[in-house]
Design a protein around this nucleic acid. Structure first.
Length: 650
RNA sequence: GCCGGAAUAGCUCAGUCGGUAGAGCGACUGAUUCGUAAUCAGUAGGUCGCAGGUUCGAUUCCUGUUUCCGGCACCA
């Protein structure tokens, strides 16, 4: 019997059935067969050796294609699993998927793997690649699979098949004669095809099926690419990311520190705080211009309010509690229980509730640089990125349901503009709609989701749907920015809330005199100042644009004869509103330049005898060989004129 | 919170097979006045994270603990 195979270019060819992808590739050219990794059969990725029994549209996927990369990585996981089981008998296999840059495999073994073991495992992997073991697909019955893995002592695998896969036929991939794993595939034809562009990177703990109440497994991570060059490029990127680490730069640029007595909270040094203030001033100006009203609410609030808001029931384990003995009142010991606020929203509702609100007051945009504290799990803490005490650029928009859409559009525009000013052009949105467990009627959800979707579409930001990931109280948008080295950070958010106004009894009087609940939009653009500054540090590698730089200019005299002139220049710049220092140390100009350049100061103002006599300064901009000598007044004007919208900063 | 690793001078790190430690940079002092990425010389600086244990003796070995690092889980 013969079947028709259709190629991507529309050509057809008939083959004797069954035929394999490999045979077809071979028929086209031996070169193609050599480069082939997979075959796409009617849009599905298949192993090259899997028999094609009926007419099909196929294309040969070579190893340089993105679809092949995932398979290369998945193969690497299997090769590693085999290497581990050869080296450490008794180790059980569980799961081992590909990741964005490579792969991992989770093992069950009593003894911990050490970093040193990784080298050995990697050696063995290379050996298995060299053995070029054929990788073959088999179809087993459910019962056979359970029997096999139980007999092999693979309890995790057996449990998964028994409980997770019900009564199905299963695919098994065999690597060589002995080693096999349950897997959907597809895989490369043999271990030799994996290539050599992989590297084991780290070992860590991981939970069985991602569940903290289940067994802890050991996860070994690796990188894998199609070519050595890609692997090298990736290793270089990692190195670059390490150089930019905000914890490291925070120390070398003297921005902040953290210490044991206040874990998860930041000690901002003068330079870090200057950066913080520059950012805060900028955000405040933007919010003022966008029609927000800034408020300030208490840090310590009685338990009662948190019970009313629902936080006590749902968020208690993340809240810091302060208890105070109020002494005897009417013969009774009185104790107050206060919570340090983890969020600002309940307090903002309290301000909203003062007096009677009219529909004319809406939308009411209430902003606060709210200092919040959350008891984050110790293992989650990470420099500025995840802290226990932080300040949000928080605001709540009280509005009518009809205003959700226009407020969302206005918010997205504001956010886009601010991200651009801060150096981020690549922004995307994750749209999370109704979860299974939710409050509020479906009709309201329909309208709210609709309003958000239309608003996002109107702003032109690319968005992806996160089905069912919304909060129980309403749908939300999450804004993700991409930094200079391609990493994504979720920062901004906008969440519709139907529930809190109800719980805390916020209301307004409508045109017809009836009382209504406002809708609340929780929104933030930076998220938290701490984390956002961490992102800024890494994005700019500490080389901040002039308007954000903690020290914008350093005045460096060449000889001590110019010291007094340098001081005058420094004063003039400071009076002009610049953050400037004078370096009058008894050092050579080379030394000063080197030091301030490595401190990433945007402008070094060099003054020697010549400048002192002429009343000029020589400006040396960071990263530029070019320098210019000009009258002091002109230099002041140039430096003063730089803000978020000028590119002098670059 | 869980698994693994680490903790030595302000910073980066070396070292002690158990006899209380060393470098570079930085700091300080002196000399040098030198025009665009490191001038020279000298000096000071450490309860070797904390608490126990073993030992004649612990920074080193053991136990506990804290914090940090890498993941996992968490991020209503």
């Amino acid at each position: 019997m013969s079947i028709n195979i259709t190629f991507p270019d529309g050509n057809q060819k008939s083959f004797d059935a069954p035929v394999t992808g490999l045979a077809i590739a071979q028929a086209i050219s031996p070169g193609l067969a050599k480069k082939a990794a997979l075959v796409s059969v009617n849009g599905e990725l298949w192993d090259l050796a899997r028999p094609i029994e009926a007419d099909a549209a196929i294309s040969i996927i070579t190893r340089d294609k993105p679809e092949a990369l995932e398979t290369i990585r998945h193969d690497a996981a299997h090769v590693m699993a085999q290497a581990v089981q050869e080296l450490y008998p008794g180790t059980q296999i569980t799961f081992g998927p590909s990741t964005e840059t490579g792969f991992y495999y989770d093992f069950a073994r009593a003894e911990p793997f050490t970093e040193g073991d990784l080298e050995q495992i990697e050696q063995r992997m290379r050996q298995i690649v060299k053995r070029d073991l054929p990788i073959t697909r088999e179809v087993w019955s459910h019962a056979d699979a359970v029997r096999h893995f139980e007999a092999a002592g693979e309890t995790f695998k057996a449990e998964w098949i028994r409980d997770g896969l019900q009564d199905r036929m299963l695919t098994i991939y065999r690597q060589g004669d002995q080693w096999l794993d349950l897997c959907l595939g597809p895989h490369l034809p043999s271990t030799g095809r994996l290539g050599t562009a992989f590297k084991l990177t780290k070992v860590s703990g991981a939970y069985w099926r991602g569940d903290a109440s289940k067994a802890q497994l050991q996860r070994i991570y690796g990188l894998a690419f199609a070519t050595e060059d890609e692997l090298k490029a990736h290793l270089k990127m990692i190195e670059e990311a390490e150089k930019r680490d905000h914890r490291k730069l925070g120390r070398t640029l003297d921005l902040f520190h953290l210490q044991e007595e206040a874990i998860g909270q930041v000690f901002w040094h003068p330079k870090g705080w200057a950066l913080y203030r520059a950012l805060e001033d900028y955000v405040r100006r933007q919010l003022d211009a966008a029609g927000y009203q800034e408020v300030r609410t208490p840090m310590l609030v009685d338990r009662q309010l948190w019970e009313d808001s629902g936080h006590w029931a749902n968020y208690r384990r993340n809240m810091f509690i302060a208890e105070v003995d109020e002494g005897e009142i009417a013969g009774q010991q009185r104790r107050s229980v206060l919570a340090v606020k983890p969020m600002n929203c309940p307090c903002h509702v309290q301000i909203f509730r003062q007096g009677t609100r009219s529909y004319r007051d809406l939308p009411l945009r209430m902003a606060e640089f709210g200092a919040c504290h959350r008891y984050e799990p110790s293992g989650a803490l990470h420099g500025l990125m995840r802290v226990r005490g932080f300040v949000q650029d928080d605001a709540h928009i009280f509005c009518t349901e009809a205003q959700i859409s226009s407020e969302t559009v206005a918010f997205c525009d504001l956010l886009k503009r601010m991200y651009r000013d801060l150096g981020f052009d690549d922004v995307s949105v994750k749209f999370s709609d109704r979860p299974d467990n939710r409050a509020g009627e479906d009709a309201i959800w329909d309208r709210a989701e609709d309003a958000l979707r239309k608003a996002v579409e109107q702003t032109g930001l690319p968005y992806t749907l996160n089905p069912g990931e919304g909060a129980f109280y309403g749908p939300k948008l999450e804004f993700v920015l991409r930094d200079a080295i391609g990493r994504d950070w979720q920062c901004g958010t906008l969440q519709v809330d139907f529930v809190l106004p109800e719980r805390l009894d916020a209301g307004y009087v409508a045109e017809d005199g009836s009382r209504h609940r406002p809708v609340m939009l929780h929104r933030a653009i930076l998220g938290s100042f701490e984390r956002f500054i961490g992102i800024l540090i890494e994005n700019f590698a500490g080389a901040f644009p002039l308007w954000l730089a903690p020290v914008q200019a350093v005045v460096a005299p060449i000889v001590s004869d110019a010291d007094s002139y340098a001081s005058r220049v420094c004063d003039a710049l400071r009076q002009a509103g610049l953050r400037v220092e004078a370096d009058l140390r008894n050092e050579k100009i080379n030394y000063k330049i080197r030091e301030h350049a490595s401190q990433k100061i945007p402008v070094i103002v060099v003054v020697g005898r010549k400048e002192a006599e002429e009343g000029t300064v020589t400006l040396r901009f960071r990263g530029q060989e070019r320098q210019q000598t000009l009258p002091l007044a002109e230099a002041v004007a140039i430096l003063q004129g730089s803000g978020p919208n000028t590119d002098l900063a670059a």
